[in-house]
Design a protein around this nucleic acid. Structure first.
Lengths: 211, 211
DNA sequence: TACATTGTTGACTGGTCAGTTACTAATTGG
DNA sequence: CCAATTAGTAACTGACCAGTCAACAATGTA
C-alpha cells in the first residue's frame, strides 16, 4: 500500500464554466452543425459531464444563442461602437467595418455560424428569428447608418441603402458557406483574404462620389 | 347490413412505386433537408407505409441518391448529349448548358439538392463523395469540354479552364442556397431569372475572343 | 476535525426514428 | 374458383440523445 496525494476528481469552477462551455460548444457546432451537435460531446470537450451544461444553460438552443452572442453579436457591438466614436472620413469607417467582419468572423471559427444558420434555420424557426433580430437587423442598421453618413457628407453617391447593404454582405456570407462545404474538395478555392480585399476596394470605388 | 363493393385497402403498383417514392422523397428532402427528413413522412406522402419504402430502396441514403439521379444527374446527361450532338457555334452551346441548368435545376424543386449537399455533406461523407463523382466531376468535365471546343475554334479566348468552370457555376449554387435560406426573410431577394440572364451575358462577353 | 453548502456527476427517462419482420390481402395463373 | 405468389402493412426493435435528478464530493466555515 502506498499513500499518495489524491488528485481531486473534479474542480469547482463556477465563474470559468460558462466561457469554457461556450468555447467547447463553438468547436462542436463548427464540426457538426446545430442539430447534429451532441451535448455530451460539448461536455466532454469542456471536461465536464452533460449535467453541468444544463447547470449553466437551460437547453441546447440557449447554448447556441450564447455562442452566437459571444462571437458574432460581440463583433456587431464592436462595429456599432466604431461608428459611434469615429470622427474621420466615412470610407475609412466602412473599410473598418468590413475588416472587422473579415478578421473576427470570416477568418475565424465563428464563420461556421452563418453557415449553420443558412443550413438549418428552416428547421429551427426560433433560432432564425433570434438571428434575424440580433444579427441581421443590427448589422443592416449600422451599415445603413454608415452609408447614410457618407452620402450626407458627399463622400458617397446616393445609392439604394438596403440593396447596397446586401451587396456588401453577400460575399462574406458566400465565403463562410464555401469554407465549410466545397472548400474540402474544390482545389481552386478562392483565397478569402484576397477576395475580401478586392471586395472592399470594389465597394469603395462603387460608392465613390464621382465629384 | 348493406352490401357494397369493397374498395381494396391498397393496390399493387410494382412498376409505379419507385417513381412515386422518388417524387415524394424529393418533396420531403426539399422541406426538411437530408437528416431531418423522415421516411415515415416520405411513405405517407407517397400513400404507402414505411415498409414499402424499404421494398424498393435499401436505405435512406440510396433513396436520396435515387432522387439526385432522377433530377440533377439526368440534367447532366442532357447536357452531355447536347454537347455530343451540337454542330453549331460554341457560344450557343454554352448558353444551352446554362439555360438547362437554370430551367431544370435552379428554377425547380431540384434546386434544394445543391443546398442540401452544401449544408449536410460534412456529416455524410459517403453522400459527398457520391455527389462529387456523379455530379460535380461530370458537370466540370462537360463544361471544360465545351470551353476547350470554343477555344480550339477561336470563338473563346484561352482561359484557365478549371477556374472559368467554377466562375460559371458559382452563381447557380448561390441562387440555390439563397432560395432555401434567406429568401424567406430578405425582402430584396435577387430575382433569379434576371440574375442568370445577366450572368450568361457576362460570361459570354468575358470569354469572347476580342478578335 | 466536523459540518454545511453547493458545484458536479452519471445513471436514468421518455421520445424519436431508421430499419426489420411476421403477417395480411391483392393479384395471377392453372 | 382456388391455390400460390408476392406487394404491402404495421407493430416492433435497438440505437440514439435531449433533458432530469438523486447522490456525491470539493470547498468553505467554525
Amino acid at each position: 500500500m502506498e499513500l499518495q496525494k489524491q488528485e481531486p476528481r473534479w474542480e469547482r469552477r463556477k465563474n470559468a464554466r460558462p466561457q469554457e462551455l461556450i468555447d467547447a460548444a463553438l468547436d462542436v457546432f463548427v464540426a457538426k452543425g446545430y442539430s447534429a451537435a451532441r451535448l455530451d460531446e460539448v461536455a466532454k470537450q469542456a471536461g465536464v459531464s452533460k449535467g453541468t451544461v444544463y447547470l449553466y444553460f437551460t437547453n441546447k438552443e440557449e447554448l447556441f444563442k450564447a455562442v452566437v452572442r459571444d462571437s458574432i453579436v460581440a463583433s456587431i457591438a464592436n462595429v456599432e461602437e466604431l461608428e459611434n466614436n469615429h470622427r474621420g472620413d466615412t470610407p475609412t469607417l466602412l473599410r473598418g467595418l468590413m475588416r472587422e467582419w473579415w478578421e473576427n468572423i470570416c477568418a475565424t471559427r465563428s464563420s461556421a455560424i452563418p453557415k449553420i444558420i443558412v443550413s438549418e434555420a428552416g428547421n429551427f424557426p426560433e433560432i432564425l428569428s433570434f438571428y434575424h433580430e440580433e444579427v441581421i437587423r443590427r448589422a443592416e442598421r449600422v451599415t445603413i447608418k454608415i452609408l447614410q453618413r457618407g452620402i450626407d457628407a458627399g463622400e458617397f453617391r446616393p445609392v439604394d441603402l438596403k440593396l447596397a447593404t446586401q451587396l456588401i454582405f453577400a460575399p462574406f456570407i458566400f465565403i463562410c458557406i464555401w469554407k465549410y462545404s466545397f472548400a474540402q474538395c474544390a482545389s481552386g478555392a478562392p483565397e478569402g483574404e484576397k477576395v475580401i480585399d478586392a471586395h472592399i476596394d470594389m465597394t469603395l470605388r462603387g460608392l465613390a462620389n464621382g465629384a
